[in-house]
Simulated scan of single mutants.
Amino acid sequence: MAKLPLVSICIPTFNGEKYIAETMNSAIQQTYPNLEIIVSDDASNDDTLSIIESYISKTRIPVKIYNHAPKGIGANWNYCIDKANGEYIKFLFQDDLLEPTCIDKMMKVLETDNSIKIVLSKRNILVDESFKSNKTKQWIEMYGDLQSNLNLKSENGISIIDKKIFKLSAFLIEPLNKFGEPSVILFKKDLIKEIGKFREDLIQILDFEFCNRALLKYKAALINEKLVTFRLHLEQTTNKNEGKISDLQKFDVIVYNQYFWLLNNKTKMKLLKKHSFIMKILVTIKRKLFL
């Protein structure tokens, strides 16, 4: 019997001592048998690394820890990938959890179709008691099911996402992220050679910008089962950066520059009016003529 491909569970960390033990437990409890765990740490100054080191003796899965000077979120993700030996990359963030069968089920989907390079799943939302509020409730109502407005067909519990989504009117409507946080995604490592790594100049949208880029060449498969738990809490990087991040303002510029010809006509016209210098001049002239 042929050995199953190696999957690298990549865990970027920074001061994650509060939840990292739960995260590590979910990693070592995977039913998929051929794994390694790659930890890329942005110079944590709490007990994150000592907690992770304690798992080296608790599992047969190789646990490799790399500590380095921080250079940003994207750089830490990419450093994880650089150090990974696996044929496949499975991100797991320091506060998230995987169901025991997560990687097993994802790999079965990926290995059946060469046109699929990314597989993702639905996710549970776990809210810390200190983070429960009406605002959080509204967030879950908006972002709890990221694919709800895509009208995807499901066959045997699997939906396919391809570049046709760029033509949907829902593409530039919230939620802009049609995939999910990195913890819900598993992808083939050789995809990096074709489309490049995560953009290190972005902070908030670098995960779904990467997935959108991948759709230009390949399909993504969505498992309509909650195989990952995404945790909401006060110490999340997104919450710490709230008010500082301007990535969302860049998103339609990226779409305009990279996906314009795949969009529907209404969206094309909207972006032309907003970003085309010639179109802005024409609109100005038209307004003056009809004053």
Rank of each mutant, 00 (worst) to 15 (best):
D190S: 12
M269V: 04
K266Q: 14
G196D: 12
E155W: 01
F14H: 13
Q236I: 01
F208N: 02
N149C: 03
G86H: 02
L6W: 00
P33N: 08
E36L: 00
E235H: 12
C10E: 03
V39F: 09
S8A: 11
I192E: 06
E111F: 01
K64F: 11
Q204S: 11
L35Q: 06
A75K: 14
I56A: 07
P175A: 03
F260I: 00
F277D: 14
K64T: 14
L191G: 05
Y32F: 13
K153R: 06
L146I: 00
P100W: 13
P70T: 02
S246M: 10
K90M: 08
H233A: 06
L97F: 14
P175L: 01
I38W: 00
Y19V: 01
P70D: 05
V184Q: 11
M279Y: 04
V119H: 04
F208P: 03
E174M: 10
E155H: 08
P12I: 04
L97S: 09
E225I: 01
I165M: 07
A43L: 09
K163R: 14
F171K: 05
D46Q: 04
L6H: 01
T238M: 09
K178E: 02
I245A: 12
I52A: 06
I116Q: 09
I81E: 01
I61Y: 07
L271T: 02
L186Y: 04
T48P: 04
W77M: 15
F277A: 15
V255N: 12
K240Y: 13
L215A: 04
S133P: 03
K64A: 08
V283N: 10
I118H: 04
N149D: 15
N224G: 04
N224I: 01
K3M: 12
D113S: 10
K226R: 15
I161Q: 05
I116M: 07
I161C: 05
R199Q: 10
Y88P: 01
L92S: 02
I125K: 02
A214F: 12
D162G: 09
K71R: 14
E22F: 08
T59K: 03
Q29C: 11
N45K: 07
G72M: 03
Q147I: 01
L271K: 09
L186T: 15
I254G: 07
K167N: 15
D201W: 00
L263P: 07
N67F: 05
V283T: 11
L168K: 13
E141I: 06
D42A: 14
R60I: 06
Y259R: 01
K135T: 15
W261A: 05
E53T: 10
K83G: 02
K71G: 06
D42G: 03
I160H: 07
F171S: 08
